[in-house]
Structures are given as structure tokens and as C-alpha cells.
């Protein structure tokens, strides 16, 4: 029994790192511009297909492929911001919600037509690491490592670099940022670009160990809501911690009760945190 629990805990944590990366982009956009990006899930799915086509089609190592996915994701984010989000950024919440929902439907519609909804699989392995009763696939370890790296880099970017601080300034008080000579529209576009890049990276990592379809991002998008509330908005370290908490729950809960209880408990937690600490367990936003 202890060995089985240990395995569940480690499995859960490994999954949690991935949830963390998946949520980071969403909570960044949410925190900086108060836009709930409903196209986040489909963008994660596009990241999965990115890895698939680069690896299966071009034979590129998936981790090198991630660099390309990051660049494409950043540019795609600029485009989505410019076309769909910028014009509704000052409108009530519902407008931006609908705008990103429209983007989501377009990606899913075109994706379903072009890629069907039968699962794809990236046939890539890094072997596995065994420690006592545990066996962890190398790809999962790499994903965990990448998650920590991305969270750390994003934190350094937001707190130590000039454009990063400008993002926090615009997030904190957009009007005042303009008075400081900060071009806030460009800063918002940059934030959206980074959020989209993170969605692509998360998808690209997940594809190395889970089969997927164009619809696979939705799960991660839903989890991102819970994680954003747990870890606070716009804080990459918070997203990582929130992801780990969620992963841990998903590892442990099935050891004690039917697996179908997992979402029930997760969203009960979501409501509970909203009621008790609306700014997130880890406090404020960027």
C-alpha cells in the first residue's frame, strides 16, 4: 500500500508540473488584461500538433521543436490579440469572452476538418528512470524540468527585465503606465503573445507522453481556471504551485474513491478558495 500511494503521489506531481505550464499562459493573460482566454485550450492542442508534425513529419527532436513552437506561438498571440482582442479590451467582460470563444471555435472547427478527432500519438521515448518501486518515464521528467525552467524564466522576465516590469505596470494601472510613456497596447499584445507561447509550449510537452486530438486542450483549460484561483493570477510560481496541488489531488484521490470524484473535489476547492481567499491562496497578482 505505501508503495502504491507513493507511486500515485509521484505520478500526480509529474502531471501537476504540466498543469502548471498549461495554466501559466492563461493566468498571465487573465491577470494582466482581465481577459479570460477561451482559446487557450485549442492553442494548447495546436502546440501538441506542432510537436507531432515537427517530429513525425520533419524528424525534429521534440525539445528542439519546442523552440520553434515558442516563436510561432508568440507571433500567433500577437495576431490573435490584434485581430480579436484589442478591439474589445475596454468593453465589458462578455465581449472579450465571446471574442476568444470565437477564436476557439475557429481553431476547433478547422482542426476537426483537417485533423479529424481520432487520437494522434508522438512515438518518442527517452526511456525511464527507476528508483525503488517507482518508474518514471524520461519524457515526464523532462516535462517537469521544463515546467520549472519556464516558470523560473517567466518570473525573472516579469520581475527583472524592463519589458517584464512594463507588463506588471500595465496590469497594475494601465492609465498611469501610459503617463510614464509606456505604450500599453503594445505591452498587452506582448502579454497575449507570451500567454499563447506558453499554451503552445505546454501542448508541445504534453504531446511527448499523452495521445491527443484537437479537443484535448479543453481539459487543461478547465484545470487552468482552478489553478489560477489557487495560485493567484499572473504569477508563474503560483501557477506552478497550483498545478502541483491539482496534480497531487488527482494522484491521491483515485486511491481512495472512484476517479469520477476528481473534478467534483477540484471544483469544490475552486469555489471554496473563491469564497475564502478571492485573490488566490498565494495572494496577489502580477
Amino acid at each position: 500500500m505505501p508503495a502504491q500511494v507513493l507511486t500515485s503521489v509521484v505520478d500526480g506531481l509529474m502531471l501537476g508540473f504540466v498543469y502548471g505550464v498549461a495554466a501559466m499562459g492563461m493566468t498571465l493573460i487573465w491577470g494582466v488584461m482581465r481577459v479570460i482566454n477561451l482559446s487557450h485550450g485549442p492553442l494548447i492542442a495546436l502546440g501538441m500538433f506542432g510537436t507531432y508534425f515537427l517530429f513525425t513529419g520533419l524528424g525534429l527532436n521534440p525539445y528542439l521543436g519546442l523552440l520553434l513552437i515558442a516563436v510561432v506561438g508568440l507571433v500567433a498571440g500577437f495576431v490573435i490579440y490584434g485581430v480579436a482582442v484589442h478591439r474589445v479590451i475596454n468593453a465589458p467582460y462578455l465581449s472579450s469572452l465571446l471574442a476568444t470563444f470565437a477564436v476557439s471555435m475557429m481553431i476547433i472547427g478547422v482542426g476537426t476538418a483537417a485533423l479529424s478527432t481520432s487520437p494522434f500519438n508522438v512515438d518518442f521515448s527517452l526511456g525511464s528512470v527507476a528508483a525503488g518501486p517507482l518508474t518514471i518515464p524520461g519524457t515526464r521528467l523532462m516535462a517537469a524540468f521544463a515546467a520549472v525552467l519556464v516558470a523560473g524564466l517567466l518570473y525573472l522576465f516579469l520581475y527583472r527585465t524592463k519589458p517584464g516590469k512594463a507588463i506588471r505596470a500595465v496590469s497594475n494601472n494601465r492609465g498611469a503606465a501610459e503617463l510614464m510613456g509606456i505604450p500599453s497596447s503594445r505591452v498587452l499584445a506582448l502579454s497575449f503573445g507570451i500567454g499563447t507561447m506558453l499554451a503552445g509550449l505546454a501542448g508541445g510537452l504534453i504531446a511527448t507522453f499523452f495521445p491527443f486530438t484537437i479537443l484535448s486542450g479543453e481539459t487543461y483549460q478547465l484545470k487552468s481556471f482552478v489553478i489560477g484561483v489557487l495560485g493567484g493570477l499572473g504569477n508563474p510560481i503560483g501557477a506552478l504551485v497550483g498545478g502541483l496541488v491539482l496534480g497531487l489531488l488527482e494522484g491521491i484521490i483515485p486511491a481512495f474513491m472512484p476517479v469520477s470524484w476528481v473534478p467534483v473535489i477540484e471544483f469544490a476547492l475552486f469555489v471554496l478558495v473563491l469564497l475564502i481567499r478571492p485573490t488566490g491562496l498565494l495572494g496577489g497578482r502580477a
Binding site: 497594475n172 503606465a177 503617463l179 510613456g181 509606456i182 500599453s184 497578482r285
Partner: peptide
């Protein structure tokens, strides 16, 4: 307005409008 600010036309607005979640030094850097 951000271009006017860049050119050196600077307003200290009513109600201060600080970046409340950022440190004093970061506010000055901005």
C-alpha cells in the same frame, strides 16, 4: 498620451495613480 510622455510632457495625476503592487524603486524605474 504615451508619446507625449516620452517627449517629456509629464503629468503627476490626481490621486497619485501609483503602481501599488510594485515597489517604490520599481515605480521610479517605470
Amino acid at each position: 498620451s504615451y508619446q507625449r510622455a516620452s517627449e517629456g510632457l509629464v503629468l503627476v495625476p490626481e490621486g497619485r495613480q501609483l503602481f501599488t503592487d510594485m515597489t517604490v524603486q520599481e515605480n521610479l524605474e517605470m
